[in-house]
Amino acid sequence: MNPTRQTSIAAQIVTFSFGRTILNTGFRMVYPFLPSFSRALNVDISVIALTISVRAWLGLASLLLGSLADIRGRKLTMLVGMGIFSSGFAVVALWPTLPGLFIALILSAGSKILVDSAVQAFLGDHVDYSRRGTAIAITELSWSAAYILGIPLVGFFISNWDWRAPFLWLSCMGIIAAILIYQVVPHVSTENYPSSSLKSSLRDLLSHPSALAGVSIGMLLSAGNETVTIVYGAWMEQAFLISVAALGAASTIIGLAELGGEGLVALLADRIGKKSSVGIGLAFNSAACLALPQLGQTLTGALIGLFLFYLSFEFAIVSSIPLMTELVPKARGTTMSALFAGFAAGRGVGALLGPSLFGYGLMANCSLAAAFDITAFLLLLFFMRE
């Protein structure tokens, strides 16, 4: 690889990381500020939780939306995704109502599907498998950056202005990200992609047992995480009576945990193997699930428990992404969109079950999350081939 090419890939990775940090901040901010949004809209938390669940289930459309990267190209798919995101968040700024929030959440889910699948497919095309774990882990830093940088800023905007302010800010940042993507990502003809139709891409995917197992593992892992994530903001408020600004700051701990998980993937996944990394992450995450309620007797213990929970989850889920990029190279965009559909289905299950289980205490949520992890580990052990 010549130096010019290396510089080009580096610039693209930085751009992808920036754009996805904006998307992920918009996607994730509803969790810690769920009580704030419900108070501003004068609705029960369960109403917005149901909206989050609907958003998650929209992810099942990933197979249709994400396959656009195979059919129309990676660059166009990214640009369309960022445009949808900015438009959706502008709706809340202009129409601050529950229907407006619903529209924003749904459009942000669609935009994330488009951009994520296109980015991962692009990296699969241009980065060798032996180094792909590191490249993808770097772009996945955007997930933790959302909590380290984005969520505290959202808390600042809400505390100093009102709940609509972060939506306007993120809408503008999405436009900037789209301009950068247009500048640094080359246009590649769809003739270069072996599977250029949805039908052929799906046929290639469905004929690969390991790919189907990988999608199932992603769904279970995501379901367990969402079962806890959907209630942690309410749990922290109830148990420790912390303010909105403090809750935003506490979310930085989660961001640091995820940053650690992504860093470990960059350091280890290419060395010890992607499948082994997923297994290690699942084992540690199940243990962290069961430890969280015990550690959560104090605020310090709760933060430590959340740190371990998100560190192990992030290590497992980020390791699964480069593993999946090489299973069905002929339909890379569709394969990644199927994985993201699995993630979305898992979030949908967790968003539905989490609030109801929370009525029995946090242990109920954490126990179910651990059971999902153990099931995923067994699928990985017996059905997944690297």
Rank of each mutant, 00 (worst) to 15 (best):
W95H: 07
W95K: 02
T97L: 08
T97V: 10
L98D: 03
G100C: 05
L101N: 04
F102L: 10
I103W: 03
A104S: 10
A104P: 01
A104V: 00
A104C: 03
L105F: 03
I106Y: 00
I106F: 01
L107H: 00
L107F: 02
L107T: 03
S108I: 08
S108G: 13
A109K: 08
S111F: 01
S111T: 03
K112T: 08
I113P: 07
I113Q: 02
L114A: 12
L114D: 01
V115C: 02
S117E: 01
V119I: 15
V119L: 10
A121D: 09
F122H: 14
L123N: 05
L123S: 07
L123W: 09
G124F: 05
G124H: 04
D125R: 05
H126Q: 13
V127Y: 13
D128Y: 02
Y129A: 14
Y129H: 12
S130Q: 14
S130D: 14
R131W: 02
R131H: 11
R132P: 10
R132Q: 13
G133E: 03
G133W: 04
T134D: 01
T134L: 06
I136K: 06
A137C: 10
A137Q: 06
A137Y: 09
T139F: 11
E140G: 07
L141M: 14
S142E: 12
S142D: 13
S142Q: 14
A145V: 08
A145R: 07
A145D: 11
A146W: 07
A146P: 12
A146L: 07
Y147E: 14
Y147L: 14
I148V: 15
L149W: 10
L149A: 14
G150R: 12
I151G: 15
I151F: 15
I151H: 14
I151L: 15
L153F: 09
V154W: 13
F157P: 03
F157T: 08
F157V: 04
I158V: 15
W161K: 08
W163Y: 11
W163V: 12
W163T: 08
W163S: 06
R164D: 09
W169N: 03
L170A: 05
L170S: 04
L170F: 08
L170Q: 03
S171V: 02
C172V: 15
M173A: 10
M173C: 12
M173R: 01
I175L: 14
I175N: 03
I176R: 01
A178K: 00
A178C: 06
A178L: 03
A178G: 02
I179S: 10
I179N: 01
I181D: 01
I181M: 15
Y182A: 12
Y182G: 09
